[in-house]
C-alpha cells in the first residue's frame, strides 16, 4: 500500500571527477523508476535540467576538492543538506587527480594548459571529508551500483547500510573464487583493498588493483614484501598504490615508502 509521505529531496552534485559514479545511478536501469518514485530528484544535472532549490534531505556528492571554488561550493551544499553522502574514489580520497599531490603542481599546470594563468587550482586534490562533515562514504572507482542503491535504501529505511569495510578476499571466498595470488602467482591488492565490487577482477582471473581503496585494518607493508617476492620492483610497487586511491592514507603511505625518486 502506498504511504502518503512527502518524498525526501535528493540532490546529486559533481566536483572534480569523471561523472562515472553519478552515471552508476543512471545505470540502475531496473531500479531507476523505484528511485525516482522514492525520492524527489531535486538536483541531478546528469539526469534532468530541472532544478529545485535547497534545502535537501540527502546530497550525494561525486568528485574531489581540487580548486578554490570547490571549497566554497561544498560548504554551501553541506549547509543545505540534512545528510551528505560522498560516492567514489574522488570524493572519498581525492581520486586519480590526487597524483598531483606527489608531484610539482605548478609544473603540471604549465605543461598541460596553454594559459596557466587562467587556472585557479589547488596544489592538492583531496576528499570531501577533508573539508566538511560527511555522513557516509561509499567507495569505488566507480562505485558499485548495487551498493549505491543499498546506501539510498538504507537512508530511506533509516537503517545501517550493508556495506562491509573488509577486504576483497572476503568477496572471493564468499563467491568461491580461487585466490589468483596463491594459486597463480598473480600480484593482487585484494588483501588490502576495501570490498564492494564483488571481487570483479579476481573472478576474471586478474589481480585486484585497488580501485575501492584501503580495507579496514589494511597492512600494505606486509603485502608489499610479498609482492616483491613475486618479482615487483620498487617503482612498480609505488605505482601499484598510486592509482585511483593514491591519497587514501594507507595507500599514500605505502606508495611513498617505495618512491625512491
Amino acid at each position: 500500500m502506498q504511504r502518503t509521505k512527502v518524498k525526501p529531496k535528493l540532490a546529486v552534485w559533481k566536483f572534480s571527477s569523471c561523472d562515472g559514479c553519478q552515471l552508476s545511478l543512471l545505470d540502475c536501469e531496473d531500479e531507476l523508476l523505484a528511485v525516482a518514485g522514492a525520492f524527489e530528484i531535486a538536483y541531478f544535472l546528469e539526469a534532468t535540467r530541472a532544478q529545485t532549490r535547497g534545502p535537501y534531505d540527502v546530497s550525494v556528492v561525486e568528485g574531489s576538492i581540487a580548486n578554490l571554488h570547490d571549497i566554497e561550493r561544498i560548504k554551501k551544499i553541506r549547509a543545505e543538506s540534512k545528510a551528505l553522502i560522498t560516492i567514489g574514489a574522488c570524493a572519498t580520497s581525492g581520486g586519480i587527480q590526487a597524483l598531483r599531490n606527489f608531484g610539482n603542481y605548478e609544473a603540471f599546470v604549465r605543461a598541460v594548459y596553454a594559459r596557466p594563468d587562467f587556472i585557479e587550482g589547488l596544489a592538492t586534490s583531496t576528499g570531501i571529508a577533508d573539508h566538511v562533515k560527511v555522513d557516509y562514504e561509499l567507495r569505488g572507482c566507480p562505485v558499485d551500483k548495487r551498493q549505491l542503491l543499498e546506501v539510498l535504501s538504507a537512508f530511506l529505511n533509516k537503517r545501517a547500510p550493508r556495506v562491509a569495510p573488509h577486504s576483497v578476499c572476503v568477496e572471493c571466498k564468499l563467491g568461491g573464487a580461487i585466490c589468483v595470488m596463491v594459486a597463480h602467482g598473480t600480484p593482487c591488492l585484494g588483501p588490502v583493498t576495501h570490498a564492494g565490487c564483488g571481487a570483479l577482477c579476481p573472478r576474471h582471473d586478474r589481480g585486484c588493483y585497488g580501485c575501492f581503496g584501503p580495507a579496514e585494518g589494511a597492512n600494505p607493508a606486509s603485502l608489499s614484501r610479498h609482492l616483491a617476492q613475486l618479482g615487483l620492483g620498487e617503482r612498480e610497487l609505488a605505482e601499484l598504490y598510486r592509482s585511483f586511491n593514491a591519497n587514501a592514507e594507507p595507500f599514500r603511505k605505502e606508495g611513498a615508502a617505495h618512491d625512491n625518486e
Binding site: 573488509h166 577486504s167 578476499c169 572476503v170 571466498k173 564468499l174 585466490c179 585484494g190 588483501p191 588490502v192 580495507a215 579496514e216 585494518g217 589494511a218 597492512n219 607493508a221 606486509s222 603485502l223
Partner: peptide
C-alpha cells in the same frame, strides 16, 4: 601482526 594482512582468508578457508 606485522605480517598479518587482516584479510580473513585463514578463517574463510
Amino acid at each position: 601482526a606485522s605480517r598479518c594482512l587482516n584479510c580473513t582468508n585463514c578463517t574463510l578457508v
